[in-house]
Amino acid sequence: MKKNLSFVIALVVTAALAAVPLFVKKDSLLTYLCMILLYVSLASSWNILGGYTGQVNLGHSAFFGLGAIATRLLWFAGWNILLAMLVGGLLAIAFALLIGSPAFKLRGAYFTIGTLALGQILYATVGNLFPQISSMPVQDLISYTLVTRYYLFLAVALITVLAATLVANSRWGLGMMAVREQEDAAESLGVNAFQHKLLALVLSAFLAGLAGGAFAFFQIGYYPQYPFSPIWTLDSTMMAYIGGTGTILGPIIGAIFFVVLKEVLSLNLAEFHPTVFGILFILVVLFLPGGFMGLWKRIKDKQQKKRESMAELSHP
């Protein structure tokens, strides 16, 4: 019953999102929605490894960047954009497999610091190898339409949320959560922790790679280093925490909240918004464990308890 309801709501929201370009004609607003969809993809893909499997990865932008760089090069070389994006996703997977073994030898905070270092190395390397700005060729600029980009971002966001939902509700998802909660106990029950972490990493990387591909198709000119910037990782991580890690809706709510707030802040405070976000993040970690989703659940639990005790009172 509850599952069916969620399914119907998801369909309605998807249909509404698909219809948006029919009604929204303002480019600034459409761009804005593109950013929300991009961040939904990034935060949700981060959440598969960071939220469901408990491995806080601060190198997520590496996958986003690899997807972007491969897609950009192939697309400019004349490839079909979807094919180019697929290769971008596969390149991200290749990198995930390369770093998976050594990275998962590290536990807890060491894993987090290790992934941060890997991300930084890649960021610096790409900056050195590709110092020139990458601009769209004229023929692509002439045929550029924002609506196409919007649909691509929408497709990637839908694929990401769908993949996360399917995994979270599968046997693999159970294993991932077991690894997150108590690795020893998980292994004693037959869960291969390394396999589960690696699968989560590979899926997370692939989806972030696709998001990178969509970005490469969207952004007119940028330094190839830019998508590798740690800012993408930090933003996605914060969104997941603010919305609630280890839930499907958390990163989506976090992304919407974050993009809207960022817009409001940068209009009014310009230079200050990173500081505001830093403070907000600390407040969430300290006072809102589980983010908005956690808060929502606590409220619901309280109401449930109240109802139960009322029922007891009326039927002693």
Binding site: M177, A178, E181, Q182, D184, A185, G246
Partner: peptide
Amino acid sequence: TFQLVKPFLNL
């Protein structure tokens, strides 16, 4: 089972 129990706390 473990001497110090190891439940999956948030499940």
